[in-house]
Amino acid sequence: MSGALLEARGLALAFGGVRAADGVDLEVAPGEILAIIGPNGAGKTTFLNMVTGYLRPQAGSIRFAGREIAGLPPRRIVRLGIARSFQIPQLFAEHRVIENVALHLAARDGFWAPFRPLLSPARRSEALAILDDLELAPLAEARADTLDEGARKLVDIAMALALRPRLLLMDEPTSGVAASEKHAIMDRLVAALRRASVTAVFVEHDMEVVARHADRVAVWSQGRIRAEGPPEAVLADPLVRREVIGVEGAPC
């Protein structure tokens, strides 16, 4: 698949004796939404960290839109069009929600203009539109450190979306979100991604979320990809069910 937006080949990274990545090969096609599943410590977050430049792979290559990005610093990679959200939301706690988003909008242009306010009318309405997409508009004026975990998670994603990325990486977007809200939130999120034709990769532990929202699933285990394919096929695979999901027997 030469048309891949993201293409990882033979990625390897060991922390001491722990092989967090042990020959990872993965391709992500433009426009698809790929879920990464796997037990804790399988190297899922390590993969995201390597793609975003936080960790440097010891071997292998990562190509984004045909360009080698392995080893580039996070700032350069972001500017190429890869944004990420975090497992533990990384918000500017003393700023309001709208300012958190506006800072990311400004990061694309006009950041260094010293006398134009952050919340210029144009930026304010653009930030509100992004928040509205995720149904966060009512929280726009709240300070980030007053939000509950679910809202923080979504604001974290809104900040990444404000960078207008071509590829969005999300680390457990629904962990910490109330079970009753998970699907509603993912529905909104996936709709927003498809509208903006953003390609997305997300790490997820909730198999129902994966089955319902991902186009494709990649199963991580001990630093390798053990299986990949459409959710219904992968999640029905007995090996995956036993090793990753931790259940035996017929698919529900």
Binding site: T52, P73, P74, R75, V78, R79, A83, R84, Q90, L91, F92, A93, E94, H95, E99, A102, L103, H104, A106, A107, R108, G110, F111, W112, A113, P114, F115, R116, P117, L118, L119, M159, L163
Partner: peptide, 28 residues
């Protein structure tokens, strides 16, 4: 006062609370 309301001025507070996120926004 005007500078502090600009993105770079507001980013000072972001250094205090979550500096790494600025880097992931593409800002030094």
């Amino acid at each position: 006062a005007s500078y502090l309301r600009s993105p770079a001025g507001e980013a000072l507070g972001a250094i205090k609370t979550r500096e790494t996120r600025l880097e992931f926004a593409g800002i030094s």
